[in-house]
């Protein structure tokens, strides 16, 4: 009984907290100063058509580095908690339909993932989305072929190498140009080309590889593969 009253009170409290947000809501008409600076800087200084990418990779680059670290810690945590025990393995054999289509589809899914993260500065998408698409390709491989063995050492190698290169690019920016993770260590190129916007596509591709390998290893561990 007391529990129900406490739940009811906390829900009413939450509604009371959010009520002013709804009643005093005014739709803004213009960007604030910070957003104006980011949009202008992204177009004129960095040459990146996708403003969200330039905010994630350059203006808030340190946050992204921290986020990739959190993702790494989560991967380590899941692997530590669920140390591969072979009796948990999923032992449903795949149907022939799944096996045949997956052999065709996996390569296409991988290519789509690579396309998404290399074009992160031109089109919607980027390292995180591309990494997730790659991880889902590995998931399809895992589901269609029960006996598949993931080569963990290659996955860990890709993950550590891309993380190391990410920090390395950051330090290079600190030495050669204005600051940590500055993309101006490479020439800016023509606005809208694939090889443009300095180091932004390189950094986002590294993030994509890192996220892809980390999520694949989370999926493999949760799926119970040894």
């Amino acid at each position: 009984m007391i529990k129900k009253v406490v739940v009811l009170l906390s829900i009413i409290g939450l509604i009371a907290i959010f009520m002013p947000m709804i009643t005093q809501f005014q739709e803004r008409e213009n960007l604030n100063e910070l957003a104006t600076d980011y949009v202008n800087g992204s177009i004129h200084e960095l040459g990146t058509p996708n403003v969200v990418t330039s905010v994630i990779v350059t203006y808030r680059g340190l946050d992204t580095l921290g986020e990739v670290t959190v993702l790494f810690l989560a991967t380590v945590g899941v692997g530590f908690l669920l140390k591969g025990k072979s009796e948990d393995k999923i032992e449903i054999s795949a149907s022939e339909l799944l096996e045949t289509t997956s052999s065709v589809l996996v390569a296409m899914i991988m290519v789509l993932g690579i396309y998404i993260f290399t074009h992160g500065h031109l089109t919607p998408g980027g390292g995180f989305q591309g990494g997730v698409v790659i991880a889902s390709g590995f998931l399809l491989m895992l589901l269609s072929n029960v006996n598949a063995k993931m080569n963990h050492s290659i996955m860990h190698f890709v993950e550590s190498l891309s993380g190391f290169a990410y920090v390395g690019i950051g330090v290079t920016g600190l030495v050669l140009t204005v600051g940590f993770l500055s993309p101006k260590i490479l020439p800016l190129g023509n606005f809208g080309d694939l090889f443009s916007a300095g180091a932004i596509p390189v950094i986002y591709s590294l993030v994509g590889l890192k996220v892809g390998s980390e999520l694949t290893s989370i999926l493999v561990t949760m799926g119970g593969e040894k």
């Binding site: 803004r28 957003a35 969200v52």
Partner: peptide, 14 residues
């Protein structure tokens, strides 16, 4: 505004 998009992108992955 691009900033909320960037923040939420990060938050979804976390």
């Amino acid at each position: 505004d691009p900033i909320p998009s960037a923040l939420v992108l990060t938050a979804i992955v976390i």
